[in-house]
Design a protein around this nucleic acid. Structure first.
Length: 589
DNA sequence: GCCGTTTTCGGCCCGACTGTTTTCAGTCG
């Protein structure tokens, strides 16, 4: 039984306990569930090594929950959980996704109407049975049907990089209105999470109604969910929910902080506020002034900017990408936050596919676009021969491409343009971990990257060893998209990420942060681990067209979410220094 | 059920909105 399954059971238990109206326990179970979800070591391993004591050491897990986890690890079952499942035989996975229906409602619906799943719920709503239950009404029944309809359309999360242009366009349109004094997108967009569920926009305005009217009449609006003076909400045709809120100037920082999240980060901040005798909400940070008479007066300590709020709490300012309560608050208290890589720190792009394989543009076209974007170099990394469907290069074609690149570099130099094209390739890692291009040709490249593109369903052991063998290859400088996932589409291949990171460190091989919006591979938590282990990373667009070069920012964002500094990323350096560093690291092994 | 520079007992994040009510529970972010 893996961590994810155990976290799921604890989270379900939290829900059942809420149905029973138990105070406080639901929160304890939910906390334990999210702690386990975030854990990077299998509970099974912890239990094997340190027994139940090791499990109790996980923050949020105490004696009682540790025992339950032990039972799950030992028997694969949990009596406590089975009892609830028997008492409420509900399809929680689907039912909890219905908006506006929580534990209390589901309990009533089950007890009165025997509703167990989404189909039951829809049927009862259509037949007008729900409105007859005390506490429910016609409106609730309609909302349930609407929400089920939405779920059926499958729209709930979006890949950030793919929806980003639309986000920018909405913010830009609104910012042009004269009534808008200030505007910022908050929420997971501001934290640059790989996927987003909705978009929260905050504005300051003395005259918000015209802004709201404009907002609910934007093109592509499917439905106006709310249309008020301080808050409006729309659903776009593609299913994205957008909320617009007006906040007073003196509260802008507090609101921005509150709506940026994450939820856990916010909770942790409010707990710190309480310990200091303060209160933090979306209007500001306040101190209760107890006067001699009974009534209390609130004194505002901070609120207009996020910086002053963090400062008043005794913390350094925390970048939005770090706000996940992964330990950043503790570091901020000790003034030990890492200085994250900046969005303008990348000098070159190390993964680019051209029309030599499955890319849409020529090397020359990429050079022009990269220059426009302010880059100083690019590495050409076309696919290699075993990936036939991409028109991958064989040895002969690669040698020919090297000649062309030499020619381009000569021309650039002659024209006095400070730009370098590096000779490289995205070499296939074959089933056994060997490469599909001969070593004597690879040795002629400036940079060798290797990646898995086939036989995805090998066992964890085989796949891990396959990639580790490529990492050990003295010719390989970088492993591209190490886990092979496609966000919202394909899970990563079965690999032992710890083993791969440790092998990369031992051999001085770099790992990639592939910036393509639905790859983002490595992802944030793996980036954090790799950096802690001392592995160097590259951030590359994986462009298949010149328009993809601006995807780099999503890779940088992911790296920032993984707490990467400029020094951790090889291509923040000049190309010559970068190559020197890589080769030196590879030799060290 | 968890946890501790207020506490090993007595607290537990906060506010808005919605739909149902006629003062509030449930849900959400």
């Amino acid at each position: 039984m893996d961590n994810w399954e155990i976290a799921k059971i604890l989270s379900d238990l939290s829900f059942y306990l809420e149905m029973e109206d138990e105070p406080f326990k639901p929160r304890a179970y939910e906390k334990a569930a999210s702690a386990i979800e975030a854990l990077d070591v299998p509970l099974q391993d912890i239990y094997k090594k340190q027994g139940i004591k090791g499990i109790e050491e996980i923050p949020g897990v105490g004696v009682s929950i540790a025992e339950k986890i032990e039972e799950l690890l030992k028997t694969g079952k949990l009596k406590y959980y089975e009892q609830f499942k028997k008492k409420y035989p509900l399809d929680l996975d689907s039912l909890t996704r219905v908006e506006g229906v929580g534990p209390k409602s589901l309990k009533k619906l089950y007890e009165k109407l025997k509703i167990k799943n989404l189909a039951d719920l829809e049927k009862a709503a259509r037949e007008g049975k729900i409105r007859k239950i005390e506490g429910f009404g016609e409106k609730t029944e309609q909302n349930i049907l609407k929400s089920i309809e939405f779920l059926k359309q499958g729209g709930h999360r979006f890949v950030l990089g793919f929806i980003y242009p639309q986000v920018e366009s909405i913010v830009t349109r609104l910012s042009k209105l004269k009534e808008v004094k200030k505007i910022t997108a908050a929420g997971s967009v501001r934290r640059m999470k790989e996927t987003i569920g909705d978009l929260d926009i905050l504005i300051i305005s003395d005259n918000p109604m015209p802004v709201m009217d404009y907002f609910v009449n934007l093109p592509d609006v499917f439905q106006v969910v709310a249309h008020g003076e301080t808050k409006s909400a729309i659903r776009l045709k593609n299913g994205l929910d957008v909320d617009l809120r007006v906040v007073p100037q003196e509260s802008f920082g507090a609101a921005l902080n509150y709506f940026t999240g994450s939820k856990d980060h916010g909770i942790h901040l409010r707990e710190i506020a309480i310990k200091k005798g303060y209160k933090l909400n979306e209007y500001g940070l306040f101190k209760n002034q107890k006067s001699k008479i009974k009534n209390q007066k609130e004194i505002r300590l901070a609120g207009e900017t996020e910086e002053e709020i963090y400062e008043a709490l005794g913390l350094d300012y925390i970048e939005p990408e770090m706000r996940e309560d992964w330990g950043e608050i503790e570091l901020a208290a000790k003034h030990q936050l890492p200085k994250l890589i900046g969005y303008n720190d990348i000098q070159g792009d190390l993964q680019i596919q051209t029309d030599w394989s499955d890319g849409a543009n020529s090397i020359e076209e990429y050079v022009r676009e990269a220059l426009k974007q302010g880059l100083k170099y690019i590495a050409i990394t076309d696919h290699t021969k075993s990936l036939a469907m991409t028109g991958g290069c064989d040895e002969k074609k690669l040698l020919k491409q090297m000649q062309e690149i030499d020619g381009i570099n000569r021309r650039l130099e002659k024209e006095g343009i400070d730009f370098k094209v590096l000779k490289s390739a995205e070499v296939n890692i074959l089933k056994d971990g060997s490469l599909d291009i001969e070593a004597n040709v690879l040795a002629k490249l400036d940079l060798v990257a290797a990646a898995v593109h086939s036989n995805f369903n090998q066992s964890k052991k085989e796949m891990t060893e396959r990639i580790c063998r490529a990492i050990r290859n003295p010719l390989v400088d970088i492993i591209f998209h190490p886990t092979g996932r496609v966000v919202l589409k394909r899970p990563p291949y079965e690999i032992d990420i710890e083993a791969i990171i440790s092998e990369a460190r031992k051999n001085g091989t770099c790992l990639e942060v592939d910036a393509y919006p639905d790859r983002l591979d490595l992802k944030d938590e793996h980036i954090k681990k790799a950096i802690e282990a001392g592995v160097k990373l590259s951030i590359d667009s994986d462009a298949h067209s010149t328009t993809h070069l601006n995807y780099l920012k999503f890779g940088i964002a992911q790296a920032r979410r993984g707490w990467a500094t400029k020094n951790d990323i090889i291509n923040t350096r000049l190309w010559s220094e970068m190559l020197k560093l890589i080769k030196a690291n590879k030799r060290k092994k």
